[in-house]
Amino acid sequence: MTAKIPLERGHLQEIYRQMLRIRRFEAKCVELYQAQKIRGFLHLYDGEEAVAVGVMQALEPRDAVLATYREHGQALARGVPMGPLLAEMLGKAEGVCRGRGGSMHIFDRERRFFGGNAIVGGGLPLAVGIAMADKRLRPGAVTACFFGEGAVAEGAFHESMNLAAIWQLPVLFVCENNLYAMGVPLEDAESQTDIYRKADAYRIPTMQVNGMEPVKMEFAARTAVEHIRAHGGPYFLECRTYRFRAHSMFDTQAYRTRDEIEGWKQRDPIERLRAWMQDNHQLTADEAARIDADIAAEIAAAVAFAEAGTLEPVADLERFVIMESVVQESPR
């Protein structure tokens, strides 16, 4: 099957804009973290933007998404608005989760974004269940589940692969293989370092993708989603990528060399796409400047929104522990 990608100027610029938007947003997050306005853990996505942006191009509003705790990029690419996202990270009542989730737990019902999950592998069984429900209630919908390669050592990974395969559920498994589970290198943690072969063992169709190249990511995701919609069963993408920054803000990176990091930065998906587009007359200097300015304005507005946010009353501390009714989960 060959997926079709609209490789025209406008679409390429949009992919570029989305990746850059994530990168710049997270640079602002670092500032806000250093200013102690964002606290707790903060896991940044720099270097991996092509994966989320590429995959989201293939998804529709009816589809579902499950994310990891490194999910700002996944959330932004899915369309979670930046203001409420940042307000959440500042612990404000205007945040997507009213300040209860923080950076690692971004949820957005309207966009069928079922959360950043900070239990490694914890979202995989949920994806299986959401796909079970969608198969009956929303035929044709796909559940995209993001996880890192660290998750494949968990039992949850193997149980979920098997369930999705035996029940032929419409799950798109997206393994963001950034080569380190926190500080443990892939080859120290896995006997089989070609992760896609694990899915193959469950007889799930797979593809190993260069996760540093957004167009290849989009092509792979569209191919996978078309396969799922046509055949019903799951599909597995292993996306080879790299995180440029530390695991979190408390990481001295003793487990990898500066040379290695610099080597991967030569493959920066944003820089390379910009250079290619400029060389091939797909992006003028004016257009690039306009994109920069638009993103800067969006971030400034998000910061203003989040800073102006209010605090959830402590009287509401226990609100939503026990729900009064089932919230109707509906596609946008």
Partner: peptide, 17 residues
């Protein structure tokens, strides 16, 4: 697969079953 089936049950409940 107690973990898997329980998690699948949670997911199915989240999505309307």
């Amino acid at each position: 697969a107690e973990l898997g089936i329980t998690g699948a049950g949670i997911g199915a409940a989240l999505a309307g079953l």
